[in-house]
Simulated assay, not measured.
Amino acid sequence: METVGAYEAKTHLTQLLKRVAKGEKITITKHGIPVATLQPADSSKKMPVREIIDQLKRFRSGHRLDGLSIRDMIEEGRR
């Protein structure tokens, strides 16, 4: 893992991001002390849109408002 100073990181951010997109990890230091790490985003956390919609539908089917209107909820929140 490469280490770069904060000033260099600020000056060359575009180039650093290109390297990170290719899989590199880069530590940013301030006065020689590590303060941040640039690393590729975790793409495994992305879920297909269809799956998210299905989860929302399942959630909605199990949670009802029992006749409450939005206006009732707003008024309840103001008390």
Rank of each mutant, 00 (worst) to 15 (best):
Lys57Asn: 04
Gly23Ile: 04
Glu75Gln: 10
Glu75Phe: 08
Ser69Gln: 02
Arg71Met: 15
Arg19Leu: 12
Met47Leu: 15
Pro40Thr: 06
Met47Val: 15
Glu51Cys: 03
Ile26His: 09
Asp66His: 15
Arg78His: 12
Lys25Asn: 03
Arg19Trp: 00
Lys25Ala: 05
Val49Arg: 08
Gln39Arg: 12
Tyr7Glu: 15
Val4Gln: 05
Thr11Arg: 15
Gly5Asn: 14
Lys10Asn: 04
Ser44Arg: 11
Leu38Trp: 00
Met47Pro: 01
Leu56Ala: 04
Pro34Asp: 09
Thr29Arg: 08
Lys10Ala: 08
Ala21Tyr: 04
Ala21Arg: 14
Lys18Thr: 11
Pro48Val: 00
Ile28Val: 15
Asp72Trp: 11
Asp54Thr: 09
Arg60Ser: 02
Ile33Pro: 05
Ile52Asp: 05
Gly77Tyr: 03
Thr29Met: 08
Pro40Asp: 05
Ile53Cys: 06
Glu24Trp: 02
Arg79Glu: 09
Gly77Thr: 00
Thr37Tyr: 01
Arg58Asp: 08
Pro40Cys: 09
Leu38Ala: 09
Gln55Pro: 06
Arg78Asp: 00
Ser44Glu: 01
Val35Arg: 07
Ile28Leu: 07
Gly23Cys: 01
Glu75Val: 13
Arg50Met: 08
Val20Phe: 06
Leu68Tyr: 09
Ile26Phe: 04
Arg64Gly: 09
Ile33Asp: 06
Leu68Thr: 07
Arg79Asn: 08
Asp54Lys: 12
Met1Arg: 14
Arg50Ser: 13
Asp54His: 05
Val4Asp: 11
Arg58Met: 11
Arg71Asp: 15
Lys10Leu: 05
Thr29Glu: 14
Ala41Gln: 14
Leu17Arg: 05
Met47Trp: 07
Gly67Cys: 00
Gly5Met: 02
Asp42Met: 08
Arg78Lys: 13
His12Gln: 13
Gly67Pro: 09
Val4Glu: 04
Leu56Gly: 02
Ile33Glu: 09
Glu51Met: 05
Val35Asp: 01
Ser69Lys: 11
Pro40Gly: 03
Asp42Phe: 01
Lys30Gln: 15
Leu16Lys: 02
Leu16Thr: 01
Gln39Lys: 14
Arg71Leu: 15
Lys45Asp: 06
Ile52Glu: 06
Leu68Asn: 11
Glu75Lys: 11
Arg78Pro: 00
Glu76Arg: 12
Ser69Met: 02
Glu8Ala: 09
Glu51Lys: 10
Pro40Tyr: 05
Tyr7Val: 14
Ser44Lys: 12
Lys25His: 07
Asp54Glu: 13
Glu2Leu: 11
Ile74Phe: 13
Gly77Cys: 09
Arg71Ser: 15
Lys30Thr: 08
Thr29Asp: 10
Ala6Val: 15
Arg64Phe: 10
Gly23Tyr: 05
